[in-house]
Nucleic acid binder design. Structure first.
Lengths: 410, 410
DNA sequence: CTCTATTATTTTTCGATAAAAAATAAATTG
DNA sequence: CAATTTATTTTTTATCGAAAAATAATAGAG
């Protein structure tokens, strides 16, 4: 019944990961502090850190004197010791990136999506990946694996892309195929989910166990961290808040239903509303073909029409966020998308709506509302999948167990 | 950082629990089957089952012959080997129950809630518990612990009742206090959450990782199992779907907002709607002071007014369930409350609403809709807390480690 | 029917190894 | 040099997995 086998290997895996994670997340930290953090005996920390030191994953940096007694030696992660290849496919392009343990981008490459179906997609990715690796051979020597994000339904545990309609892709074992072709561990995930994970990983010091990342582009969707873990739903379709109905008499949505949130607040919806209003003669500085960015800029500068478009959208979004809050009681809601350029306009509207439409004891006052810090750094989504695998899912020990380590010597 | 300490004790705890759980959930099962189920070596299973046998928790029942080879010996849990005390407090009464490992009720006692504030509440519970234990001394000899459910906000990990306004109770460490008074392990939880857990435990053979239990009485709320675990939210207030706004122009709710779901579909709301309609002269067999049960009965028998009241409520509930489905993509939605007497009327309406208001690929067709099988057996909520502690949270080993076992000899 | 070969389950034995505990070493201050 | 804190080494304990051994049944030959 248990998916994880609990034995001595598991203990070693968990504790090694925990120690490494403590070092990665805390920055410089002494062995004794690690022992306290991870609730391990001092001797165990010595053994584990020795393993990590020998493999060049961490290094001793300096001694820290205390009031009295032997000074502690601080340890840090050698972020250059291992590199991660990130692949991020969207509807039109494939982005390749190479980053270090900290997520800093070292190299990148963007190419148009040439494939029109599943096989071609796989071929393109395999070929371009190999080329990319060769072109950056100095950096890719320490490559420990590949993180891949795609649109559509992806089962990140198995690495199978269940559905990616624009490429007629159904049930593609992408992780396995790519692993076969490159010999590297591969982890695949849906982009929105993975970027939610990335956002979650950003703040290890202030761990937020329940958060919602809402992205607003031409579609509107949400990623969720619940009880500290990424939640994706039974059929991997959780977070479809764009198709929550907010007005039964509203316009028809492409999904077939009526009055979906997306029909009101997506970028294209706002641009269309703007177009209509301008044509109808509303006083504004905007042209009738203004983009969402134009609208946000105008709103920030006080344009009345733009402001009303943005705040109306915020009120509608707030309504749905209130429902989500009543249902899930999250600590934090993070927004992403062009409309966040006008976050200072949106925030008070959402807060007010939350206050009015949630039960008081849900503590809507304490909800943190913010703009995504990493949505625009696409590669961080794929990086987050690899980081999770490394720090929480046993990839670290898998790497250490191979004697032919790709890790740079100290 | 990790809340759980991963060491040898942890391995033993997890594997012993896994084996016992396999026996409890599977019924008669051989050692080799356990080994395959729990991914353990056969020798490990022998060792663990020996421990359980020696302590009277399981017993060998019969041998099962195969085509050839040594027959396997089937093991079952001795459900009479340990008893669980359940306490369930609501606004007006406290229910005490004694049940065996399988959840079957062996004795019960119900008394009015006399307390009006925190201290008195604690006193009453302690006193009545002790009396109840003494009165059933034959059964309570094998008592392994107490499960308690209350209304309000309860942190089940710590056993602290954070808020129970009707008793002016805030921050009461109920589990600790009761443990102190009785010497028994105690686990406290919110009733709605715990009953959701109970429902989840009912179907171990068909494990559903994501489900929603919606209860409709005078309040409307939801409990959630997400990724196989009970989800309660950051401030323990998840599931407040009764206060999702379904009409901004709707009637004022006692929570201060307008148009809450609860104002339309709660028992009292339906009774009030019925009253108004009857007074207004709608043709019906119902009296103007019909109860919710009357309304359901009439609806089932074809009364037009009753049917329209019920189906209207179902449509509104369906609307909110559609939102929940879009957001959470559950496998199963379970309904509880008097209105489920008319489930056959409600179900098609909810299904239709789900179909219309969820994105098609969410797979709303596959959603299981059913009536709660254990909502009316209140004690099962408290039992579920104890069962979880025993089978998943290390209580089993805690009990086995005490040499003075309360467990009945074979 | 009896005996033997076969086969699958269960038990025992043994080795590897991880963590805890205890003892020791090292580094620094006053 | 004593006191103190950190780090390392050694010893101890305990679990798991693998494999050997024991066990208990059946099938089929004679």
């Amino acid at each position: 019944m248990p998916a994880v086998i609990v034995n001595l290997d598991y203990v070693k895996e968990k504790n090694t990961s925990a120690v490494f994670k403590a070092i990665v997340e805390h920055g410089a930290i002494s062995r004794i502090q690690i022992a306290r953090t991870c609730l391990l005996a001092a001797g165990s920390v010595t053994r584990i850190t020795r393993l990590l030191l020998e493999n060049g994953l961490i290094q001793e940096v300096e001694s820290q004197s205390h009031e009295r007694g032997r000074p502690s030696v601080l340890l840090v992660a050698r972020k250059q010791s291992l590199h991660i290849l990130t692949i991020s496919a969207d509807r039109h392009h494939i982005h390749y990136g190479l980053c270090d343990l900290s997520g800093e981008l070292l190299a990148e490459h963007k190419e148009p999506l040439q494939a029109t179906q599943s096989d071609e997609f796989l071929q393109q990715i395999i070929q371009s990946t190999q080329t990319f690796i060769q072109q950056h051979s100095q950096l890719t020597r320490q490559l420990i694996g590949i993180g891949i994000t795609t649109p559509g339904l992806v089962h990140s545990e198995t690495g199978v892309v269940h559905s990616m309609p624009h490429l007629q892709t159904y049930g593609l074992p992408l992780a396995d195929r790519l692993k076969q072709a490159t010999g590297l561990p591969c982890f695949v995930g849906n982009f929105s989910s993975a970027i939610t994970l990335a956002e979650h990983q950003l703040t290890p010091h202030n761990p937020c166990r329940n958060s919602l990342l809402v992205s607003i582009h031409n579609g509107v969707g949400a990623g969720m961290i619940l009880d500290g873990r990424l939640y994706e739903g039974s059929a991997l379709t959780a977070g479809e808040i764009g198709h929550i109905q907010i007005d039964p008499l509203g316009p028809r949505c492409y999904c077939g239903n009526f009055g979906c949130l997306e029909s009101y607040i997506s970028n294209s919806a706002l641009e269309q509303q703007c177009h209509q209003q301008v044509q109808a003669g509303s006083p504004t500085s905007l042209p009738d073909n203004a983009t969402i960015t134009d609208i946000c800029n105008a709103a920030n500068q006080g344009d009345e029409l733009a402001r009303s478009l943005i705040t109306n959208a915020a009120a509608r979004l707030g309504k749905v966020l209130a429902m989500c809050t009543n249902l899930l009681n999250p600590e934090k809601i993070i927004l992403a998308g062009e409309i966040t350029e006008s976050f200072s306009l949106i925030e008070p509207v959402i807060r007010m709506t939350l206050q009015r439409q949630t039960v008081s004891f849900v503590g809507e006052k304490d909800i943190q509302l913010s703009v995504s810090a990493c949505y625009n750094r696409r590669w961080l989504a794929a990086y987050a999948l690899m980081r999770r695998a490394l720090l929480e899912q046993g990839l670290l020990l898998e790497i250490l167990n191979k004697k032919a380590l790709p890790i740079a010597a100290p």
